[in-house]
Computed example of a mutant assay.
Amino acid sequence: MEPTKDETHAIVELVDVLLREGVVVQADVIVTVADIPLVGISLRAAIAGMTTMTDYGMFEEWDAAHRHTGTTTNRDR
């Protein structure tokens, strides 16, 4: 009998690590036509849960402002 691997478990683990630990994605893209570079794009994104972001000093002002004003989302209404 062969062991089976549950695919959804891997996705849940990935999302859990992303939210808990976070990840930084960086990409440099150059768009060329006929070997002529036309556009250069430099991208950098930090992906993490809000608790992790505020632990690292990111979005502190935004978080404090929204907690202070008691802003609700459509889900909370």
Score class of each variant (00 low, 15 high):
Met1Pro: 05
Glu2Gln: 11
Glu2Tyr: 07
Glu2Gly: 05
Pro3Arg: 07
Pro3Lys: 11
Thr4Cys: 13
Asp6Met: 02
Thr8Asn: 15
His9Leu: 15
His9Asn: 14
His9Cys: 12
His9Gly: 08
Ala10Phe: 04
Ala10Pro: 00
Ala10Met: 04
Ile11Cys: 00
Ile11Gly: 00
Val12Ser: 09
Val12Tyr: 09
Val12Lys: 14
Glu13Tyr: 04
Leu14Gly: 02
Leu14Asp: 04
Val15Gly: 01
Val15His: 05
Val17Met: 05
Leu18Tyr: 01
Leu18Pro: 00
Leu18Asp: 00
Arg20Ala: 14
Arg20His: 11
Glu21Lys: 03
Glu21Cys: 02
Val23Glu: 03
Val23Ser: 03
Val23Tyr: 03
Val24Met: 06
Val24Glu: 07
Val25Gln: 10
Val25Trp: 09
Val25Gly: 10
Gln26Thr: 15
Gln26Ala: 15
Ala27Gly: 04
Ala27Glu: 13
Asp28Glu: 09
Asp28Arg: 07
Asp28Val: 06
Asp28Ala: 07
Asp28Pro: 00
Val29Gly: 01
Val29His: 04
Val29Glu: 07
Ile30Thr: 15
Ile30His: 02
Val31Ile: 14
Val31Gln: 10
Val33Pro: 00
Val33His: 09
Ala34Gly: 02
Ala34Leu: 06
Asp35Phe: 03
Asp35Tyr: 03
Ile36Leu: 10
Ile36His: 08
Pro37Cys: 01
Leu38Glu: 04
Leu38Asn: 04
Leu38Gln: 06
Leu38Trp: 04
Leu38Pro: 00
Leu38His: 05
Val39Phe: 09
Gly40Lys: 09
Gly40Phe: 06
Ile41Gly: 01
Ile41Lys: 02
Ser42Met: 05
Ser42Ile: 04
Leu43Phe: 09
Arg44His: 03
Arg44Trp: 03
Arg44Lys: 15
Ala45His: 13
Ala46Ser: 08
Ala46Cys: 09
Ala46Ile: 06
Ile47Tyr: 07
Ile47Leu: 11
Ile47Trp: 02
Ile47His: 04
Ala48Lys: 00
Ala48Glu: 02
Ala48Val: 01
Gly49Cys: 01
Gly49Phe: 00
Gly49Lys: 01
Met50Trp: 06
Met50His: 06
Met50Ser: 12
Thr52Phe: 00
Thr52Trp: 01
Thr54Pro: 01
Tyr56Thr: 06
Tyr56Met: 09
Gly57Leu: 03
Gly57Ser: 04
Met58Cys: 08
Phe59Cys: 12
Phe59Asn: 13
Glu61Asn: 11
Asp63Met: 14
Ala65Phe: 06
Ala65Gln: 11
His66Cys: 05
Arg67Cys: 08
Arg67Gly: 09
Arg67Asp: 14
His68Glu: 14
Thr71His: 12
Thr71Ala: 15
Thr73Ile: 08
Asn74Gln: 09
Asn74Tyr: 08
